[in-house]
């Protein structure tokens, strides 16, 4: 009985989350074939022996074609810049919410969480209407006389940054809020009593104490952003290189499953470091 409680979720997640990674790993070293499914059989019986051919060709292919390297680097750059912008916008918001009186604090927190409950796809889609050449943003800017030609915003990297920051901002704010609201107000008062200016207090007391929130929030934005597919597909242009889109195209357009699997494995390796960092922060927070 007691065993079953842990065993059921363990078995489910093992079978449908862990085992798929092993399959992914296996297929990333198999040979592509024009077949259904499009790779050579994973195991073969020959002379009563079960043999498994490993083929590193897909990884060599990834290393030789600069498209892949550029896509990984560009994804990391786009994710890092978006994370930084989300931090610069999210930190003051989390700070203001943590300092707000209790009644208003709950309302503001709900306002941060509410967009998370509404469709992510539709919220990203909303930006198409805002950003396109005859969209709301351009119309307002034209009307204000700031510009006399509509700006090209949609289908640029800028629109992708905007979309990522917009989508993941709540993930940045919530962990920041969690650390900032737990902070001991006496420390700030003590610093002020001892003559520290607000800026100094912030840099020497508040910011260092909120570092777990900064790191957790940043990782929660950065990790999914690296593999993002929908945002570059809807808001990015032909020049926007992101590894999530490369994987998608390898799979759906080129139907090269083994190469898509290799792209995914390399992505997991790239993300292993930030994921470990996040887990470590979360474990520390728990204890």
């Amino acid at each position: 009985m007691r065993r079953l409680v842990a065993a059921l979720p363990l078995m489910w997640l093992g079978l449908f989350f862990l085992v798929p990674f092993l399959v992914l790993l296996r297929i990333s070293v198999s040979e592509p074939a024009i077949a259904q499914p499009p790779y050579l059989p994973l195991f073969e019986w020959a002379d009563g022996l079960l043999t498994m051919t490993l083929n590193l060709g897909n990884y060599i292919f990834l290393a030789e074609d600069p498209l892949y390297l550029f896509s990984y680097l560009s994804s990391l750059k786009i994710a890092a810049v978006s994370t930084l912008i989300a931090l610069l916008l999210g930190y003051p918001m989390a700070y203001a919410i943590a300092r707000a009186p209790t009644g208003r604090r709950n309302l503001l927190l709900m306002l941060v969480i509410l967009p998370f409950w509404t469709s992510f796809l539709l919220r990203v889609y909303a930006w198409i209407g805002l950003l396109k050449a005859n969209g709301l943003v351009n119309n307002v800017l034209l009307w204000l006389g700031v510009i006399d030609q509509p700006l090209v915003i949609l289908q640029t990297d800028f629109a992708v940054y905007l979309g990522i920051v917009y989508t993941y901002l709540p993930f940045m704010i919530l962990p920041l809020y969690a650390t900032l609201s737990k902070m001991d107000g006496d420390l700030l008062e003590a610093a002020a009593d001892l003559g520290a200016r607000p800026a100094v207090t912030f840099l020497t007391v508040t910011l260092p104490l909120s570092m777990p929130g900064v790191l957790a929030g940043s990782m929660l934005v950065f990790i999914p952003a690296v593999g993002e597919y929908v945002i570059p597909a809807l808001l990015g242009g032909p020049g926007t290189l992101m590894i999530g889109s490369v994987l998608w195209n390898e799979f759906f357009l080129n139907r090269d499953w083994p190469v898509a699997a290799a792209v995914a494995i390399v992505m997991v390796l790239v993300l292993a470091l930030p994921i470990t960092l996040l887990r470590r922060i979360q474990a520390q927070e728990e204890s």
């Binding site: 979720p9 363990l10 997640l13 093992g14 989350f17 862990l18 798929p20 990674f21 399959v23 992914l24 990782m219 929660l220 990790i223 999914p224 690296v226 593999g227 993002e228 597919y229 999530g244 994987l247 998608w248 799979f251 898509a260 699997a261 995914a264 992505m267 997991v268 993300l271 994921i275 996040l278 887990r279 979360q282």
Partner: peptide, 16 residues
């Protein structure tokens, strides 16, 4: 296993 799917990019979960 319960925390990994929270941050894993969707393309990887889907493909695997």
């Amino acid at each position: 296993l319960v925390t990994a799917p929270l941050v894993m990019p969707e393309v990887i979960i889907g493909l695997s």
